[in-house]
Design a protein around this nucleic acid. Structure first.
Lengths: 214, 214
DNA sequence: CGGATATTTGACCGATTGGTAAACATTACA
DNA sequence: TGTAATGTTTACCAATCGGTCAAATATCCG
């Protein structure tokens, strides 16, 4: 008698890896565009090019699909913040953090929207990750920033809200892409908007907006 | 024979106004928390304390409900940007724009999330509003900012991305509230976080983050 | 009052939802 | 090659979806 669910087997076959990959790729497409509740298994199945029961052979439920996707993407998503280096030059660290986050908004907008959808709707599936690993990581990096300020390397400021502001400004270009493009108009909606954004954000976070005194 | 839909009558009765108000209030609750596709008429009906067919007596479809809600909220939502005054003191105008947007994130988070959900999922119902009235308004205010820069009152910067960064940083506290609270921890999740945010954002946008020389 | 109009509801509809059962097809491997 | 395990599909299920209908009820106004 066959073991009913592939997920329960210990060894993963080549087919399992390929199909699960295929499914998660499709799930990212759908979940990021419509949110968890707004997505249907049929839609994911269609994008993945497989039948619905076939999806459910690899992931027992819609929730399991979503969870596997979140788990897979979360680690990568936090990579830029993890790379934030206490030993580095503060200005350069902040600059490159912004640059990397903006690159991710440009190159991985679906991942950004996946989390945005989830958090926006109360984070029912990732509350633990937010309060646990995420908070720990941010606490750690906030302490780094605070130390920089203490030693006068950067100006004194609230490190948590600094991080929030970098998150929000950069991810805005992924999460609110349609709005950004609508406002910029067709002529400025090429990929050049990311370079403009990078220039502006560097000016904002590094250079400051106040006009230099005479 | 009764005119089948209240919406078709010319004169609106007291009951119509009250009930429509009641329904839109409930719809704001549900749509902002779950997005259009994730929401059901039954949920709205339950929150509104009425039966489902009764909702559909006032709004023929789920879409009509959503549209009426959007129409009602959009004008108010853009009020702070509209108040942006070309004749005012630039620094003070930007400062008070940020303050007002942050107050709206604090006092009207549902409205913020309503639009966030919509835009995040591709703005299928408000594309026209984005490309029309919103773009026009932003174009107009961007011109004001550009003029300020030209005359040396503020530093030269991209006005569109400046506006985007103010939107994103302030609305972040409404749209990503659960994440903000999770990261700040229970002890910093009181309403005081908005004052901290206000202080930080003023520092960022007005004061600049670079340490003052000598 | 009384009748016209406006409002409300329970029962119901077809379509779609997440998920299952079991027959069928394919693969891996001794 | 044979067979057991893995993979796939068709047909189906109960629950829920957006929405309709007719009958019942409440309100307005002469």
């Amino acid at each position: 008698m066959a073991i009913p669910r592939a997920a329960k087997t210990l060894r993963r076959t080549r087919i399992q890896e390929e199909k699960e990959e295929q499914i998660l790729e499709a799930a990212l497409d759908v979940f990021s565009a419509r949110g968890f509740r707004g997505s249907t298994i049929d839609q994911i199945a269609e994008v993945a090019g497989m039948s619905k029961p076939n999806l459910l052979y690899y992931f027992r439920t819609k929730e399991a699909m979503h969870r596997a996707l979140i788990d897979r993407v979360l680690y990568t998503w936090l990579e830029p913040l993890r790379a934030f280096d206490a030993e580095g030059n503060p200005e350069e660290e902040i600059r490159s953090y912004i640059r990397r986050k903006l690159e991710m908004a440009r190159d991985f907008p679906r991942e950004s929207r996946l989390f945005a959808n989830e958090v926006l709707q109360g984070a029912p599936h990732i509350e633990d990750e937010l309060k646990g690993p995420l908070k720990q990581l941010v606490d750690e990096k906030a302490e780094v920033i605070r130390a920089w300020a203490k030693s006068g390397k950067i100006v004194e400021c609230d490190p948590y809200h600094l991080i929030f502001s970098i998150w929000s400004t950069t991810q805005h270009y992924a999460d609110f892409d349609v709005q950004v493009r609508a406002v910029l108009g067709q002529e400025h909606s090429g990929e050049g908007r990311f370079e403009d954004a990078a220039r502006f954000l560097e000016q904002l976070f590094i250079g400051g907006l106040r006009p230099e005194l005479g």
